[in-house]
């Protein structure tokens, strides 16, 4: 029933599919690849070669083609692969109570959190830095390098708070952390642990 996907952690989903299949990773990957290939039977083998960085394409397609899939310039085949994983994931997780579907959350970044900082640092590239001790322009880079996940606070209607962790590399269609707070989204989430609200602060 999804009409728009703004974030999808494909690697986690594909791990989940493989593990659910009883560790038959190769079989699942092969199956996904096969079906994606069928859909794109008309696509030249060249395209597959360019996707050799995908773990399940494997070494069959010459390594080192140095393909950089830009955020928007994703090839159609790689999109099909990705959407095949998405479709499989949706079917598999629908009746799995371990994957919780959280609805109606108000999502915010606490004022002193890393996620909050990360929302602003991209703009610091326009800051004047000559007379300052630190290079503000590179702060974004530094934060991106320091942490691959960002925590946001999700508040339900009953005032129960959850911490939602996002893989910064998993946003789709050029969405980012800042956009989440403005959308009415359903989050598919896996419970991984506990923390305190204070634990989200930069200092912690």
């Amino acid at each position: 029933d999804l009409i728009k996907v703004v974030y999808f952690d494909e690697q986690s989903a594909s791990d989940y599919l493989d593990i659910s299949a009883g560790g038959k990773a190769v079989t699942t990957a092969e199956d996904v690849r096969q079906r994606a290939n069928n859909v794109h039977a008309e696509v030249e083998a060249k395209v597959a070669a360019k996707l050799s960085w995908l773990p399940f394409i494997g070494g069959s397609a010459g390594a080192g083609t140095g393909v950089e899939a830009s955020r928007t310039g994703q090839s159609m085949l790689s999109k099909t692969l990705s959407n095949t994983i998405l479709t499989d994931y949706l079917a598999k997780s629908a009746d799995d109570h371990r994957v919780r579907q959280l609805r109606g959350l108000r999502v915010t970044a606490p004022g002193d959190s890393m996620a909050y900082m990360k929302m602003f640092t991209p703009y610091m590239i326009i800051a004047k830095t000559e007379d300052q001790g630190i290079d503000l322009a590179r702060l974004d880079e530094a934060l991106a390098g320091a942490k691959g996940y960002y925590e946001l606070l999700g508040e339900a209607d009953d005032d129960v708070k959850h911490v939602l962790r996002f893989n910064i590399a998993a946003f789709r269609n050029n969405y980012g952390l800042t956009d989440l707070g403005r959308m009415r989204l359903v989050f598919h989430a896996v419970h991984v642990g506990h923390t305190t609200e204070r634990g989200l602060g930069m200092e912690a």
């Binding site: 029933d1 999804l2 009409i3 728009k4 996907v5 703004v6 974030y7 999808f8 952690d9 986690s12 989903a13 989940y16 998405l86 994931y89 997780s93 994957v99 919780r100 959280l102 609805r103 996940y149 925590e151 606070l153 708070k161 959850h162 911490v163 939602l164 962790r165 996002f166 893989n167 989440l180 959308m183 009415r184 989204l185 359903v186 989050f187 598919h188 989430a189 896996v190 419970h191 991984v192 642990g193 506990h194 923390t195 305190t196 609200e197």
Partner: peptide, 16 residues
């Protein structure tokens, strides 16, 4: 008090 931490796999807009 303790908050539950969730790793998000997917976020999307639902129909309806």
């Amino acid at each position: 008090d303790l908050l539950d931490v969730y790793d998000v796999v997917l976020a999307g807009v639902e129909y309806g």
